[in-house]
């Protein structure tokens, strides 16, 4: 899985952006490319990239987190270090907060992204009730693009039901993903499948992912 040097991960709340970002970071660093993961989620209090700093350290992935990460401070402030990533060697992955609200933070960097070139991947999940149809999902991206002042370049079909995900769960999402891609006029760059779930093979750009985002008792 080769990704753009500046890859932005955006989408609706709870579609699996953080888990995808962690997978892309780990898989990219394994190819020998240095990776920086920027936690841009300042709208969600739990389950952010910064909560997985140990995993990132183990893989020698540089994490840029909000100054309040790991504390109970509930302040939407960003790290100034973010400005350094545009000059950084290797790949940078931006894990953005959910919806247009979460993507607002991208707006201040939009001219930098446009100057350097970027990939913005829109993560979708057919099983999220407020964006379970292609129409809602397409409308939601319009909000994200308006606040981020950037355009999505591709879709990641990350449709899943956590532990209840079966092959059928993914197969049942394909039509929805295709319709969303048609409406938005951007390609599906990958369809994720949890590692260990066998029985799916004939889908293009299948991306096997690990489940890193878990509850403390899992």
């Amino acid at each position: 899985m080769k990704i753009h040097p500046l890859t932005i991960i955006c989408g609706h709340y709870g579609t699996g952006k953080t888990n995808l970002s962690l997978n892309l970071a780990v898989d990219t660093v394994k190819t020998g490319v240095p990776v920086t993961l920027v936690d841009l989620d300042i709208v969600n209090p739990y389950f952010r990239s910064s909560d997985y700093s140990r995993l990132l350290e183990e893989h020698n992935i540089k994490l840029i987190a909000p100054g309040s990460a790991g504390t109970t401070l509930d302040v939407p402030a960003l790290s100034a270090e973010i400005y350094s990533v545009f000059e950084r060697e290797g790949n940078v992955i931006f894990d953005v907060g959910g919806d247009g609200v979460g993507a607002t933070v991208l707006g201040r960097f939009s001219s930098k992204f446009i100057a350097h070139g970027y990939e913005m991947l829109y993560v979708i999940n057919h099983y999220r009730p407020l964006a379970s149809q292609a129409e809602d999902t397409a409308a939601l991206l319009a909000e994200i693009e308006a606040t981020s002042r950037l355009r999505a370049t591709g879709i990641v079909n990350n449709s899943h039901l956590m532990k209840d995900t079966t092959c059928q769960t993914i197969i049942d999402s394909l039509e929805y993903a295709d319709e969303t891609a048609d409406r938005l006029g951007i390609p599906i760059k990958m369809t994720t499948v949890p590692k260990g779930l066998n029985g799916i093979s004939n889908i293009p750009d299948l991306y096997p992912i690990s489940i890193y985002v878990r509850t403390p008792w899992d």
């Binding site: 099983y127 039901l161 956590m162």
Partner: peptide, 16 residues
């Protein structure tokens, strides 16, 4: 809607 969906606890409380 008798199908399975994926929800946050807070969202599920609201929808319920």
């Amino acid at each position: 809607m008798a199908e399975k969906v994926l929800m946050k606890g807070n969202e599920a409380l609201a929808e319920a």
